[in-house]
């Protein structure tokens, strides 16, 4: 088993495992965010739980950060290696004849998502960590009420930020439209039992980003 990450298939496998983890995380993130549309209290309670429960903070959060970093660093490593595998390009290449735009441009959709993650960290994660672990306020309160919902709505006032979020989620959808199914192929799950996954992957790849876009637009347009 040693050196599995040095092999092409081992790297594919690791890439797929980190992708699975990130896709499960995304689903969980969406499940909590969508609460904000229906109930500010429910969103506050869920956010406070996620922000203070030890297992989430000290176990899942480090794994998530590692997963994100591993996924994009390995993405870059693979891109560099793959470029080396063809040093002279074709004068004429008709990629559209045999593969989807999404599958050929994972590096670009991935970079767009990475840029979004930076923005997202500046918007939410860094202030959250600062409040909890630098200032030391674990209460989650603001003027006697939980601050999470208030912070969320405030962030979505700016049309520029909402626009950036919408564009980022379109890229996320493009990334997932190839990545979801690709991850299953990489772990060897492509046979007669997994044919139904293709439909499910499309529903997930379009549904989850569309849901996030809906949440951002909902708060922007309603102002609450």
């Amino acid at each position: 088993m040693s050196g599995i990450l040095n092999s092409s298939i081992g790297r594919k496998f690791a890439m797929a495992l980190s992708a699975f983890f990130l896709m499960i995380f995304l689903l969980q993130h969406f499940a909590i965010n969508i609460l904000s549309v229906f109930s500010a209290d429910a969103f506050n309670e869920a956010s406070h739980f996620m922000g203070t429960f030890w297992a989430v903070q000290y176990l899942l959060q480090p794994v998530l950060i590692f997963g994100v970093i591993f996924h994009f660093v390995m993405g870059f490593v693979l891109e560099i290696k793959n470029n080396k595998a063809r040093q002279i390009s074709y004068a004429k290449n008709n990629g559209a004849a045999n593969s989807s735009w999404m599958s050929r441009n994972m590096i670009w959709s991935g970079l767009a998502i990475l840029a979004f993650i930076v923005l997202h960290f500046i918007d939410f994660w860094i202030p959250e960590i600062n409040t909890k672990y630098i200032v030391g306020d674990m209460s989650g309160m603001h003027n006697g009420e939980f601050r999470y919902f208030h912070e969320l709505v405030e962030k979505f006032h700016s049309p520029l930020r909402v626009g950036a979020y919408v564009v980022a989620f379109v890229f996320l959808a493009l990334h997932l439209l190839h990545g979801f199914n690709s991850a299953f192929q990489s772990v060897g799950a492509n046979n007669k039992y997994t044919k139904g996954l293709k439909t499910f992957s499309k529903i997930y790849a379009i549904g989850i980003p569309a849901g996030f876009i809906f949440i951002a637009l909902f708060h922007h347009l309603t102002g609450h």
Binding site: S8, R11, A85, S99, S100, S103, H178
Partner: peptide
């Protein structure tokens, strides 16, 4: 041999 890594494009 220096072949690249498969990214499942299906080409």
């Amino acid at each position: 041999e220096g072949f690249g890594n498969c990214t499942n494009t299906g080409a």
